[in-house]
Design a binder for these strands. Structure first.
Lengths: 303, 303
DNA sequence: AATACTTTCAACAATATGTTGAAAATGATT
DNA sequence: AATCATTTTCAACATATTGTTGAAAGTATT
């Protein structure tokens, strides 16, 4: 019996609330997922779900078994991870999360070559500009751009990331081109900010002749998706503060113009966070190495 | 993939030291056990054993994975036990150990009817007169006759067990029939004792007019198997101190004669030991109930 | 060198698993 | 109330996996 598989679907079904979607998440047809649950129920001799065709709720036993099943699955993961530390080649699935722009432009292009190089591996990417809790979401590593959040995770720095303030020519001619940092604070310009629940208070820090200066910027709208901000900027709605490598093309073809070129934002750090205990797992190291060794041509700016 | 099965054989193979015996222990042919290990190794991408046809030693990884595999298996047991507490009918395998005579005469006859009554169950009996560590050997319950060993196990008393001293007529006519308790101490008679490594110092306690008396008995040979003792007694080699129900037939047909009938040994307790945490598991309660409710006709003496 | 035992293999048989399309059920919508 | 869109489940079939058997190969022990 594919007992472990059954436990996996079972857990997923509880988490996603339906047999169909739980099954889909593990790439099995509803029929199979359904059969798996029936097998499990038969094996255990109890009913795990109360189900109608339109609703599915776990029974009391189901809820208890879910907790236990998660422990079983965790201990299996554990066992297999213990193994992969012995093997010198990386193996297993790597679940990563990255910011949208960075993920799309830097990580995603490097994924296929990694999996090709190490056939025992699989990558699951989750792209999001929101802060994700990699422990709660059972991820292996989180890439980030910005200031490293302090947490009990291990950090590996990948590169410094030059940032740039920019806006569309149309916006600048309409609203005026700022000459000094102070020209964009206190709502004088519409600064497009990334914001999500519990995002830190926002200010931009720019270089000046005598060090750096914190700018209290604000804008009339925000979003939790960097691509939305970029679109807004391109449409002439405001100023954005973005990694240089993402804006490069727009600057070159004149869609966007650098703002305050003598006062660029201080660079942020591109890095990767992961739980301590995964440090010995070769897949982790190999994947980070792969990213670090191959992302330079994409940044090509190394200041 | 029968992943869990693979883990089980793997663990058993490590414990028993060979693929053949590990497989046999789980009722699979050597060919299957071998295939299972190969699957596991392929799945994990590491070699678990160094093997020649005549010797099998786990690799370093193998030893590590063994520890992890045991944890996985334990968590599976845990999960399933959590379930069986919800089910009102007993389910699962019950691993018991009993003394030889008691097991053969009392427990064994009641096993088939139990399994018939509760089709979800299986019984694994281990018969031995030696002291067994039920936690180390991963057993569910241990029946015993005698004084309850003090341990951190829970005890359920099943019955008092009348004991009897007896010897063959031939022995008694040759060596003389003792009239008083003092006649059998200090090596005056060959008392056949059950002894095994770390068995307690031995004495027999008999009833007297004014309470009880400890008798310092000894014999020229002993064994760790009660049936051997019985055979010796039948062949006229000495006096034994045994549960009444086991000797009944021999007394009736004259093969053995009760010794010191007015000073019988104090009764010992028949009971059952089990780990606390298994208390809620219905299979445990049901099995003990079944034994207790059905063993009386076998004892039929209830004094 | 012969023996006895263990592991492994190949070929086959028996089981189990996954797929597909359709049916049944139900909550939402008209 | 009737229809609709979903979801679960079923039956029949194709596919894959697992178990069996008997034989072969290898190796400590005698």
């Amino acid at each position: 019996m594919a007992y472990v598989d059954s436990l996996r679907v079972f857990a997923r079904i509880i988490e996603l609330g339906s047999i169909t979607s739980g099954g889909r998440d593990l790439r099995m047809t509803p029929a199979v997922a359904s059969k798996r649950i029936k097998e499990l129920e038969k094996h255990l001799g109890v009913r795990l779900f109360n189900r109608t065709t339109r609703s599915l709720t776990p029974t009391g036993v189901g809820r208890v078994f879910y907790k236990e099943a998660k422990k079983v699955l965790a201990s299996i993961d554990n066992a297999e991870n213990a193994i992969s530390q012995f093997s010198d080649t990386p193996r297993g699935v790597i679940r990563i999360t990255t910011p949208l722009g960075f993920g799309r432009r830097v990580i995603a292009p490097l994924v296929p070559s990694f999996v090709d190089k190490f056939p025992g591996t699989e990558i699951r990417m989750r792209l999001s500009d929101r802060k994700v809790d990699i422990l709660a979401e059972e991820l292996d590593m989180a890439f980030f751009i910005g200031t490293p959040p302090d947490s009990n995770l291990k950090l590996r720095k990948i590169a410094d990331c030059k940032r740039i303030l920019c806006a569309s020519p149309e916006y600048l001619s309409r609203m005026g081109t700022p000459s000094f940092p102070d020209d964009i604070i206190d709502g004088l310009h519409n600064c497009l900010l990334l914001r999500y629940p519990r995002s830190p208070e926002y200010f931009w820090t720019v270089k000046t002749n005598n060090g750096s200066q914190k700018l209290n910027v604000s804008g009339k709208y925000d979003a939790d998706d960097n691509d939305v901000l970029t679109k807004w900027a391109l449409l002439g709605h405001g100023i954005i503060n973005k990694p240089h490598f993402e804006m490069e093309d727009y600057i070159k073809n004149g869609k966007l113009i650098e703002v305050l070129p003598s006062n660029p934002p201080i660079p942020s750090i591109i890095g990767c966070l992961y739980p301590h205990k995964k440090l010995q797992d070769p897949k982790m190291i190999y994947f980070m190495d792969h990213i670090i060794n191959n992302c330079n041509p994409i940044f090509q700016f190394k200041d």
